[in-house]
Design a binder for these strands. Structure first.
Lengths: 253, 253
DNA sequence: GAGTGGTCTAGACCACAGA
DNA sequence: CTGTGGTCTAGACCACTCG
């Protein structure tokens, strides 16, 4: 094949399918031909088609229902605006930031909240200056999605000392959300830091977020600081990289 | 094998090698055994070992020199602090932010700068409000690395109208860097926005950054805004996800 | 040319979903 | 039970590096 200069066959097959999707031949949500058919059409073995599909799945462009078929991913990326999420202004307009982001895609947000008292991960314990060996934090574990598509798991850790008996321990944190509660409790968050990495998902995340091992998640390590430079909340956000664009904004000093 | 509940063999092999690396059996920079040897030792086919290695390479944990061997990646991730990079404070201390970040790893930074007048990409043209069809911008293309390890390609686009004949068109932009030149020219950047995605590298990036198709890059779309809300600089940063941690910081409003 | 990794095929078997 | 994708093997061939 003169048209494949140095590119391996399976990557070429991936290119062909990717282009067909981009050209609208297979619209969002539609099924791709079976592996056997693609193998025949393209004159390669099924194993090679499988390799090609693995590439597309890793990119988040294709989703596979084992035993059923292969489908084009239905959802475009969500834009997460970090600064706006925490601005007092936006928050007071009503629902949460995630809800707004999902609505922007014409979908309905689904959020499931679980609250526990837990021993925090070592890194969290260190930042919050609490014990990693006792249930020294309240964890708010949120599973978020658009309709039936899981999109994010976010776990907030708050020192029990601060959260005990307050609305922070309730599912519904009330108007203005958790940030407003912190302010009322004398722990107004004035400075935010976030640390972003891209890494393979854990087994748990693969299951919750309907991912494969070849895909990647953003892990956002979010910390809220008071004027006294005390860390009062750490939130770990995990979401598929292919489902998100992360926006940041700040003023220069 | 009772020890592999549902996990496929090649992922299990990847786990074994990953653990051996984590345990220090193969230190940073050292060679792994040949695929044949690993296949023999573990009682699997070479193709399966190859699949496993592909997983580790995608994670950035292993690097392959074709025809030579497989090696453990030598460099831990670099921390890029977005806010500090652009704070007047830090910049005036001397060398650039990248230099500081690389020194933190005990390495020497290498930067190669190329300056051209180019027609900007459509998205850049739109933000800067210049023509995408003429050489309406000065492009500062920087290839950065630590010693001989390539780490980042950053391309700044500045409207010719602003940059023409100034130090911005020079390789060495002088004390305080390009940001100081903008200020002197009456285009002080007071607000920064960054948009982060993780995506497969382009063919060019694979070559420049010594990557494989299965790895991912962060693409940071950086824009500098003046007090008059005019975008005066767009910089596109591209770096391997496994080589970077992205830090952000801002004050709540 | 020898050695190493990268890919491909054919065929086989397994896992999972749905009729 | 059938059909779909996921993986594995053995063997083959190719590409790249180094001596």
């Amino acid at each position: 094949m003169r048209s494949t200069p140095k590119r391996s066959v399976f990557r070429h097959v991936a290119d062909v399918i990717r282009k067909a999707i981009a050209d609208g031949e297979y619209p969002r949500g539609s099924a791709l031909p079976k592996e056997d058919e693609l193998a025949d059409e393209l004159g390669v073995s099924r194993a090679t088609v499988n390799d090609a599909v693995r590439v597309l799945v890793a990119e988040g462009l294709v989703r596979v229902h084992r035993g059923v078929g292969m489908f084009v991913t239905e959802l475009p990326p969500i834009v997460r605006n970090a600064a706006a999420r925490y601005s007092t202004d936006e928050r007071e307009r009503g629902r949460g930031a995630f809800d707004v982001e999902v609505k922007a895609l014409g979908r309905t947000s689904r959020v499931r909240v679980r609250i526990e008292r837990v021993a925090p991960p070592a890194r969290v314990a260190e930042i919050l200056k609490v014990s990693p060996n006792e249930p020294s934090t309240v964890a708010r574990i949120r599973h978020m999605g658009a309709d039936d598509i899981p999109l994010q798991v976010a776990t907030s850790y708050i020192p029990v000392e601060i959260a005990a008996g307050t609305a922070i321990e309730q599912e519904d944190t009330g108007p203005g959300g958790i940030i407003s509660r912190f302010a009322e409790l004398g722990h107004k968050q004035v400075r935010i830091t976030e640390s972003v990495t891209a890494r393979p998902p854990t087994a748990e995340e693969i299951s919750y977020l309907a991912m494969t091992e070849d895909q990647r998640v953003f892990e956002i390590f979010h910390t809220g600081w008071t004027a006294e430079a005390r860390a009062v909340e750490v939130c770990v956000h995990v979401m598929p990289t292919h489902a998100y664009v992360l926006d940041y904004e700040w003023m220069t000093v």
